[in-house]
Structure formats: structure tokens, C-alpha cells
Design a protein around this nucleic acid. Structure first.
Length: 549
DNA sequence: AACTACTTCAACCGCACGTAC
DNA sequence: CGTACGTGCGGTTGAAGTAGT
């Protein structure tokens, strides 16, 4: 390994590096030039000798004051390098080796909550470093991207809908950390109420916060600009290897389509014995997706809703000036973290199930505009509304303990919408719009990412169209939206669609009328009474090649 | 055995924050 | 208040290792 670098001191004291091709063998004459001392700092891998020097130093002087290491020892390393070496490799009680399943699961859950807050995660993983966690996560992203799996298990996502509006505000636009911390320290006031949504104790309809949450969620979800996430729906042609495997990983594309649309009974029989939490998050499912050895129910996009999570941006600048720091549902309030951490199994598996069902409700059948651009804009709003309904219906189904049907891994409430809150304040959507505006992200940009618009755009659903559109036989399996929607088929969406009573309830849910009869969707650009668009009215030109195969 | 593709992970880089002066 | 410095964090890079052909 050659890390030989010539560094040029910059104005801010940092050293820019010019890599040489000559081998570096403790070449102190060709490294970083220390600030003010004129000595040369070494870069690259640490030797055991250097490690020993650093260890000795820390033993004598303790951690911190890393720049003094160079001054007080013969170590020709900059302070940053020393700190990194100590923190990641030399400090005691470091746990080396692969992550355990428990650790992996915890990381997934923490990332759902925190986003790329590696250091915070590391605090909850004794002996692990932020760098380790970060590397693990990046590797995991790549693996799941290849496998076409959602970044988070659905259960994770559902749980993660319980995040704070305030927190989101503070992270949508990159606020300074001080303010962020101030917010987190609000403590027992509003934040805790918001974070305590899991209790769902209130029968009030918190639509405003839901909407804003969802708005932010999707804003963040569009932060697909991150180099790691933007390719979650692969922007590149699959490798020959991937193509060979595509038959299993993208079963709907295969010629054996009839095997992919199987009866609910099939799913019931073949679905893994799924504990909503433990199974979905089990490392063997989440992090080690075997290409050809996976149950159909766990295959590829488990649901489009969750799929979007894979596109969550974390910190890379987005298309505009906005830097999206965290995934949609992140909050780092420690108390909230501790709360869920201590309850590894979700206390609301029923809730999760029911939410699954609604997540898997039909994709748009009707969108106002004909051109993709506008429909994408519309679709975002509709998607947000749709997600809001999902969330709120889940809460109410929780409260009412509705009877459920189960198809395979998915349970849905048969009378969920009877519990659906109809009370939606007129101002809530305005709030949502404000949130959208606040995000400063072009809607079209957001929506074009990964073809999500196809999965979510539009909430106006005509009952009579549903059976027609969503009969498996009428699916155009070449289309990405169908591919996305196929995840519902996987998870029993037909149970909803085919049940007319459920369907009407679902319609009510989706339309979300308020007391005055005002349709939810009419506030947005999408409206009822327009010509039906069908499933494929959105352009697929933005779809990554793999979907166009 | 040689080559290629892919994965892992240690280390670097730039930025931002806190603090001292 | 502004500046310099120390520190921490998150993103990225690239060499080493591994698997596949």
C-alpha cells in the first residue's frame, strides 16, 4: 500500500494531499507538514511502532489534546490521525470482528431512528466504533441494493413514522448542531408527546403532524442524491451476474410469472414464520440476502413504501441548496431511543400488520395531469396524503383491535376504515404544503427518483376500476410500477382489493374527507373527477435501466 | 495460475462546532 | 466580536483481500 503523500498546507491549516507513486516506507520526508513546526507528518497505515508510541502517550497523558502527541513524542502524525487511530483501533475494550446478529439488528433500528449518526450509534454499541458501523452500513446498502431489497424492513419503517415534526424541521434544512441539540433537549415538552406516538393513546387525529412528518419523510426520501442511496434503484445496468440472477430477484420479470401471482394461501404456506420484527430484521434477511435462496415474500421490494426508504438521503447535498441530513423518520432523542431499544419487539405487531396492509393498498389509478412532470408533482402530495392515511388508520386499528385476516406475512384489518378518523382539519393540508415549501426540493426531482411516483402518485381510486386494474392477469409485468406494486401481491393486497367493503373503506381512507365533505385530495393538485389515468400514466423515462429490461 | 470483479475497511478529507484568547 | 485552534463527525477513497472465471 502506498500512501505516500505530499501535503501542501492550506490557509485553514488543513493539508491537501498530492499522492506520489513512489512507495512510502516511513518516508517522513514526504508526508504532511506539521503546522508551525516544519516537520513532516506521515500518512497512511500505522505501524506497530507508531501504535506503541501513541498508546504510551495516552497512558501518560490521557485522551485528548491530540495535536500535542506530535509535539511530545516522536510520532509524526497529525492530531486527527492520532485520535482516529486511538478511537478506532487502539483504545481498550474495542470489540473486533464481525457484528453479531443482535448488533446488526440494533444498527438497522438505530439507523432508522437516527440516520447516519454513526457516532451516536456507536455509543449504543459498546466496543464498536462509528467507523465500523458506518462501513457496515455502507456495505449493507450495497448488498441490499443489489438484491433489490428495501433498506429497512417494513416494520422498521412503520415504527419510524413516529417521529417528530420539530426534529424534521431541524434537519430538513441543515441547521447548526447547536440548535439541533437544543431541540433535543426540549425534553419533556412537546417532543416527548410526539415521540410517544407509539402509544397511540390519543384518539385525536394528529393529522397535522402526520402530514408534516410525511412531507418531511418524503423530502428526505428524495434525497436520493446521496451517492450511496441514489442508486438504490440501480441507475446502472445490472452486471451479467445480476442479470443471471434477475429471474429470482425480479420474479415478475421472469417468464414464470404465473408462479409469482399466487394465491394468498400460497403465501400463507410459504411465507416465513414471520415475527413482524424478528424475522424482517434478522440479519440473514436484512443483511445477507442470498440471491437465489429467499422466500418470495421477502424478495425484492417488499413494499413500495419501504422501498422508498432505500433512497433516503442522509447528508449529501440535494439538488438544491438543501442538504438533507437524515432519513425521513429520524430523531435522535435519547429517551426515545432508549425506549425502543429496551423494547426490541414491537409492542404493536398488530399495528404493523395493519399498516402493512395499507402500505400495500393500490397505487394510483387516477391522476389529474397527463404530463409526467405535473403528475409527479401531484403524486408527491398524494403520496403524502396516502401515507398519512396509512399511519392514522394504523393507529386507529390499533385502538379498535379490529379483526384481521392474514395472508402470508401480512395481516390487514377488515374493518380498519371504520376506525378511520374522518376529522381532518382544513389547515392540516396547508401545513403540509408549508412543509413542502420548506423543504425547497423540486417536487419533480423528488418524484422522479426511482419512479416512486408510480407507486404512490394519486389517491383517488375508483372502486369499479380496482378489480379490473389489479387483476394479476391485467398487469403489465414489464412496467416498473407493476413491479413495485407486485410487492403487494406478495403480501396479500388482494385481500383488500377484492373485499368490496374493505375497498370502500379504503377509499374513504384514501380520500380522507373531512366533516364538511371536502375531499382531502381536492386541496392538492390532484383531484377527483378527472379522467382516469390508469397505472401507467407516468413516464418511465427516468427509470433506471434495470426496470426497463 | 492468471486475471478480473467485487468486497472490506483503514485512513483521509472537509466541514462544523466549541472554546480560548 | 473575530480569529485561531482543537476536536468530532460523516463522506469518501483506495489498497488489500477474496471470490469467481
Amino acid at each position: 500500500m502506498s500512501y505516500t503523500t505530499t501535503t501542501v498546507e492550506s490557509d485553514d491549516g488543513m493539508h491537501s494531499s498530492i499522492h506520489n507513486e513512489s512507495p512510502a516506507v516511513d518516508n517522513f520526508g514526504n508526508g504532511c507538514r506539521s503546522r508551525g513546526r516544519g516537520s513532516v507528518l506521515k500518512k497512511g497505515p500505522w505501524t506497530s511502532n507508531e501504535d506503541g508510541i501513541l498508546i504510551d502517550y495516552v497512558k501518560k497523558h490521557g485522551e485528548g489534546n491530540w495535536n500535542a502527541v506530535q509535539k511530545h513524542t516522536s510520532l509524526a502524525r497529525c492530531g486527527k490521525s492520532c485520535r482516529l487511530r486511538w478511537a478506532n483501533h487502539l483504545r481498550p475494550n474495542l470489540k473486533k470482528g464481525a457484528f453479531s446478529q443482535e448488533e446488526e439488528q440494533l444498527i438497522v433500528e438505530m439507523h432508522a431512528k437516527m440516520g447516519n449518526k454513526w457516532a451516536q450509534m456507536a455509543e449504543h454499541l459498546p466496543g464498536r466504533t462509528d467507523n465500523e458501523i458506518k462501513n457496515y452500513w455502507n456495505t449493507r446498502i450495497k448488498r441490499r441494493q443489489r438484491a433489490g431489497l428495501p433498506l429497512y424492513p417494513p416494520e422498521i419503517h412503520v415504527e419510524d413514522l413516529q417521529w417528530s415534526e420539530e426534529y424534521t424541521k431541524s434537519t430538513i434544512t441543515r441547521v447548526d448542531r447547536r440548535r439541533h441539540q437544543d431541540f433535543l433537549q426540549l425534553g419533556n415538552s412537546k417532543t416527548n408527546v410526539l415521540f410517544d406516538d407509539l402509544n397511540f393513546a390519543s384518539s385525536l387525529f394528529p393529522g397535522a403532524s402526520d402530514l408534516s412528518d410525511l412531507v418531511s419523510c418524503n423530502m428526505l426520501g428524495t434525497g436520493a442524491s446521496s451517492s450511496l442511496y441514489e442508486s438504490y434503484m440501480p441507475p446502472i445496468l445490472p452486471s451479467p451476474k445480476q442479470l443471471r440472477e434477475s429471474g429470482s430477484r425480479f420474479p415478475v420479470c421472469s417468464s414464470n410469472i404465473k408462479h409469482e401471482f399466487q394465491s394468498p394461501e400460497h403465501f400463507q404456506n410459504t411465507a416465513p414464520q414471520r415475527n413482524p420484527r424478528s424475522c424482517s430484521i434478522s440479519p440473514c434477511d436484512v443483511d445477507h440476502p442470498p440471491y437465489g435462496n429467499q422466500h418470495s415474500t421477502d424478495m425484492m421490494i417488499s413494499d413500495s413504501h419501504t422501498f422508498m426508504d432505500g433512497m433516503l438521503s442522509t447528508s449529501k447535498p440535494s439538488f438544491g441548496a438543501v442538504k438533507l441530513e437524515l432519513p425521513s423518520f429520524q430523531y435522535s432523542e435519547s429517551s426515545a431511543f432508549d425506549q425502543w431499544k429496551t423494547t426490541p419487539s414491537p409492542p404493536h405487531s398488530d399495528l404493523l400488520d395493519s399498516v402493512d396492509a395499507y402500505i400495500q393498498s393500490p397505487p394510483p389509478l387516477e391522476i389529474e395531469d397527463s404530463d409526467c412532470f405535473s403528475s409527479c408533482d401531484t403524486g408527491l402530495l398524494d403520496m403524502l396524503l396516502h401515507e398519512a392515511k396509512i399511519k392514522t388508520s394504523a393507529k386507529h386499528s390499533m385502538l379498535m383491535s379490529s379483526p384481521k385476516k392474514s395472508f402470508g406475512s401480512t395481516t390487514y384489518t377488515t374493518d380498519a376504515t371504520q376506525n378511520i378518523p374522518r376529522q381532518i382539519n382544513s389547515g392540516e393540508f396547508e401545513y403540509s404544503q408549508k412543509s413542502l415549501a420548506r423543504s425547497e426540493i423540486p417536487f419533480s426531482t423528488q418524484f422522479s427518483a426511482g419512479g416512486l411516483s408510480s407507486a404512490f402518485a394519486g389517491t383517488v381510486v375508483k372502486t369499479e376500476e380496482l378489480d379490473q386494474v389489479w387483476e394479476p392477469k391485467s398487469l403489465d409485468i414489464t412496467r416498473p410500477d407493476v413491479l413495485l406494486a407486485s410487492s403487494w401481491l406478495d403480501q396479500g393486497c388482494f385481500g383488500i382489493v377484492r373485499d368490496s367493503s374493505n375497498m370502500s373503506d379504503a377509499l374513504a381512507l384514501l380520500l380522507g374527507s373531512d366533516d364538511t365533505g371536502n375531499s382531502y385530495v381536492t386541496v392538492g393538485s390532484s383531484s377527483a373527477g378527472q379522467a382516469p389515468r390508469g397505472v401507467g400514466s407516468c413516464s418511465w423515462t427516468n427509470m433506471p435501466p434495470v426496470w426497463s429490461l
